[in-house]
Design a protein around this nucleic acid. Structure first.
Lengths: 249, 249
DNA sequence: CTGTAAGCCTTACGCCGTAAGGTAGGCCCC
DNA sequence: GGGGCCTACCTTACGGCGTAAGGCTTACAG
């Protein structure tokens, strides 16, 4: 890797590999978060990974916050690419298919986020307007409006979807969920936990006893996140469809 | 040194004010987060507020993480108290009223969280099973099941509600939202922002132009969070009701 | 040849959470 | 009533964080 000839006279113009760019910094940051968790993404560790010193990063990002903004942008762009590869533009989608088109887009977004489990917690904390996030949402708005929903209803719809629009929803009780640190699997002695639950939350225990995919006497197996996500999403989409059908609102 | 009489012989028994307890530590932590934001809640600043040294806190909480667990618990207990003061127990609620009962409970929870804007971001990161969180959710499960929903449907319902069950939902683009630091109001020159939006997100701009409570040429006024929260909540509740009506699912 | 700017490095500061250990008073039990 | 122990506090110190300030080299422009 470039070892020899450190003083190559190349202008570092086009595809120079040895020169660091913001894009390369961000890519490495994403890779680091993927492999070591969000907590391991520090200026120092990122620099180490890139073979430079921490302070040198500041020539490519303004601050750690800016780094995280950039990282979020990379992820959203990845979503945009994935969606673009599968979906026609909103204008080329038959209006009547808005619901399925929306559904597919959102599930595609989700599939990208599943590759970056730490991403939701980063996206949650970015309140700014990344151009890519905006563009993504704009396509959803277009789809809904072309589907016949009034802008008023579209507006409500976007709020109702919330973070679901980007493919995630935070769930209370979700061990190892969107937290980011894969090493943090809180596993207190499940015996005690179940015993506590049984008298503190009898109805929950009764429910879990009945719902198929969990045997309450085993270690708490968790839910089928994908199925649950789709259930909630469909509940909202169906509700929107009904509201749309009975004339705007 | 508490000024006079440092060696008061009182046994620090019942309601002694001078002795620190975990409860007092947690109460002060909540107060500090309320007034200065979550970012200002550090072991050192909390100790300063209590007139002790940082390390002394470790006699009452095991770690910062434990402190945050405790803080979350305080908030949830506050929710439980508020709900308990207004609502009959699930067993005393007519089954047919499940939807309204659930709605009221959740909106009560929300009203508590509005007093602690930083609380959602703490609750989001607690993956453990606080007894109070569990108890709260258990009551919701009871209400739903007594209302005639199968446990299977109840289970889906809890997932669909997600954090909404506790009264919040994260929204992308929500300046000064559940972040926690009240001092961080990102206000980039709104002129530029709107200009950028206009060509990056024409549909969003069109929507905002039409939706009543925002004049797009003014500084971006934000949405009526409460109304939007209720819209999303009702969408889900109505959908659940419909599913319940046509027999389990 | 000189000026300037970019890209990287060194050093250092003030935060953070917390490990380790010290001390002073109150309690129990012999 | 005296020795030991427990509790609640303190002091000191460590390693890690983000980053301010400034220095050194190299590449290119005039």
């Amino acid at each position: 890797m470039s070892t020899s000839r450190t003083s190559t006279p190349q202008t570092a113009g086009a595809g120079a590999r040895s020169t660091l760019t913001r894009a390369r910094v961000l890519a490495e940051a994403v890779a680091l978060a993927d492999s070591e968790g969000l907590g391991a993404l520090t200026m120092r560790s990122l620099a180490r990974e890139l073979g430079i010193e921490a302070m040198s990063l500041y020539h490519h990002v303004a601050s750690k916050e800016d780094l995280l903004d950039g990282v979020a942008e990379v992820v959203v762009r990845e979503i945009l690419d994935a969606v673009g590869a599968l979906e026609p533009a909103p204008e080329d989608t038959p209006p009547a298919e808005w619901k399925h088109a929306l559904r597919r887009r959102i599930l595609t977004a989700r599939s990208v986020l599943l590759r970056h489990p730490w991403a939701p917690s980063v996206l949650e904390t970015r309140t700014g307007f990344s151009p890519y996030v905006v563009r993504y949402h704009d396509a959803l708005v277009a789809l809904l409006h072309r589907g016949g929903l009034s802008y008023d209803l579209v507006h409500h719809a976007m709020h109702a979807l919330g973070s679901r629009a980007l493919g995630f929803s935070q769930e209370l009780f979700d061990p190892g969920g969107p937290g980011g640190d894969p090493a943090a699997a809180p596993e207190p002695d499940d015996e005690d936990l179940l015993a506590r639950l049984t008298d503190e939350a009898p109805h929950i225990v009764a429910m879990l006893a009945e719902v198929a995919h969990v045997e309450p006497d085993s270690t708490l197996g968790w839910c089928d996140d994908q199925a649950e996500f789709e259930f909630g999403l469909d509940l909202i989409l169906d509700g929107l469809e009904r509201l749309a059908a009975r004339g705007s609102r």
